[in-house]
């Protein structure tokens, strides 16, 4: 039996490594002013969000979480539990690291929504853009998240700014998908009614389709937030500060307790935000039910 039937023939070579490297290199060399500008804008955006997050005193945040949980679920025990969990992050000495992490997550989520929501509407309204977007979104969601770190570092350097970019790329697909899905699944008769009364496309989008799709869109926001939080540790490898960095340091130094404290804090944040946003989604679904 010839050897090429057993071993993959080494003569066949598809070199996409060089092509991608060259492309990134080209961007680094020729687009430097552009990426510098992006970095600057993002940095000031981040510092403004950081400012808002820092300005809220610890006790106010705990009270806010208590009130919100109460408002969403009307369960006193749950409101107390979440407040206590949040308090424990402070008690572990991780409050200011949590603020840093929250800043990165919030910035990424805001950018994801600002870009993902209009894209989702576009995808819902035309089959062609749907066909184009679907493989891109699939790739973005299945690509190992570490891969995004490399170009982010090359183009934007180390620190929280490339972390925000990498997190946004990773977290944006559910926002686009669920916005589009939500708008497509609005009852056809309701959309017909909007048209029959002489709505322009814009009017039926703003006044009927988006409000009807809101619970699904909020589910997209919820998933985007969760994915952003799951990138926290990964992004610490490119110099993002906060709880993720704490985990990374404890891995390097084999400090199990320190690692778990930071890890548990991330879990607590994720649980609280998840339950709060899901509660809002559920409330929206109840009013939308026919």
């Amino acid at each position: 039996m010839p050897e090429w039937l057993i071993e993959f023939p080494s003569a066949i070579q598809l070199n996409i490594k060089d092509a991608i490297d060259n492309f990134v290199h080209y961007l680094v060399v020729n687009w430097e002013p552009f990426f510098d500008g992006v970095t600057k804008v993002l940095r000031s955006f981040l510092s403004q969000i950081g400012y808002v997050v820092e300005i809220i005193p610890w006790w106010l945040l705990i009270v806010l979480v208590f009130l919100l949980t109460w408002k969403v679920g009307r369960k006193l025990s749950r409101a107390l539990l979440y407040s206590a969990l949040l308090f424990s992050i402070g008690a572990m000495g991780l409050w200011s690291l949590m603020n840093t992490t929250l800043t990165i997550v919030i910035a990424s989520v805001i950018i994801s929504i600002l870009i993902g929501f209009p894209l989702g509407i576009l995808v819902s309204s035309s089959n062609r853009s749907n066909v184009i977007m679907r493989p891109i979104l699939d790739t973005m969601q299945t690509m190992p998240s570490f891969v995004y770190l490399i170009p982010a570092v090359m183009l934007l350097g180390l620190g929280n700014v490339p972390a925000v970019i990498a997190t946004t790329i990773y977290a944006i697909p559910p926002m686009i998908r669920l916005t589009s899905h939500g708008i497509r699944q609005v009852d056809n008769e309701v959309v017909e009614a909007a048209r029959a009364f002489g709505s322009t496309r814009w009017q039926s989008l703003i006044k009927v389709q988006i409000p009807q799709a809101l619970p699904t869109i909020m589910a997209g926001v919820n998933q985007t937030i969760m994915m952003a939080i799951s990138m926290v540790v990964t992004c610490s490898m490119i110099g993002a500060t906060g709880l993720g960095q704490e985990v990374l340091i404890s891995i390097n130094r084999l400090e199990t307790g320190r690692g778990f404290s930071a890890g548990i804090s991330i879990v607590i944040i994720a649980i609280i935000i998840d339950r709060l946003t899901q509660g809002i989604v559920k409330k929206g679904e109840e009013t939308n039910e026919q």
């Binding site: 008769e189 009614a193 006044k207 009013t287």
Partner: peptide
């Protein structure tokens, strides 16, 4: 469509996110 002709649907085609008054006032 806004002034001359309007439509009533089999499954009502009402907008669940609006109350009765805002549904009637939609057109």
């Amino acid at each position: 469509r806004r002034r001359k002709i309007s439509m009533v649907f089999q499954n009502f085609g009402l907008m669940a996110h609006r109350n009765v008054l805002d549904n009637v006032a939609y057109g």
